[in-house]
Computed example of a mutant assay.
Amino acid sequence: MTALETLYASGGKSDVAIIPTLELSCPAWAESIYICQGFDDITAKTEAGLTRKFVAAGIDVALPKRDNSGNQALTFAIDNVTGIAQQLIDQALDARAKIGMVFRVYVSNDLNALAEAPYRMTVLGGTMEGSTVHLQAGYFDLINLAWPRRKYTLDFAPCLRYI
Rank of each mutant, 00 (worst) to 15 (best):
A77F: 01
A62L: 12
N80Y: 03
L63F: 13
I59E: 03
N68V: 03
K65G: 06
T75L: 08
G58K: 00
D79Y: 00
T75E: 12
G58V: 01
T75N: 14
G70P: 04
F76A: 01
I59L: 11
D67N: 15
T82I: 05
G70E: 06
A57Q: 15
D60N: 13
D67Q: 06
V55W: 07
A73R: 09
D67G: 11
P64Y: 07
V55M: 07
R52A: 08
V81Q: 11
V61K: 02
T82F: 09
L74R: 02
F76H: 01
N68C: 09
A62N: 14
R66E: 13
K53S: 09
S69W: 12
I78E: 00
G70L: 09
V81L: 13
R66P: 05
K65A: 11
G58D: 06
T51F: 02
T75W: 03
A57V: 06
T51R: 07
N71K: 10
N71C: 07
Q72Y: 04
D67E: 08
P64D: 06
I59V: 14
V61W: 04
Q72M: 12
G70A: 10
L63D: 11
L74H: 05
A56M: 04
V81D: 15
K53L: 12
A73P: 00
A57L: 11
A73D: 10
D79I: 00
D79H: 00
F76T: 01
D67H: 06
Q72D: 14
N68R: 12
T82C: 06
N80W: 01
A56W: 02
R52G: 05
A57T: 11
A56F: 02
R66G: 12
D67V: 07
N68D: 12
A77D: 14
A62G: 04
N71L: 11
A62P: 02
K53N: 07
G70M: 09
K53H: 06
T51M: 06
A77I: 02
T82S: 14
K53F: 05
V55Y: 10
F76M: 03
Q72P: 02
A57W: 04
A57N: 15
N71V: 08
A73W: 02
R66M: 12
V55N: 06
I59W: 05
I59N: 03
T51S: 15
V61F: 11
N68E: 12
I59D: 04
Q72F: 03
P64F: 08
F76L: 08
D79C: 00
P64N: 07
R52P: 03
T75M: 09
S69E: 10
F76G: 00
T82M: 07
K53I: 12
D60G: 13
P64E: 09
D79K: 00
I78C: 05
D79N: 03
D79W: 00
D79R: 01
I78T: 02
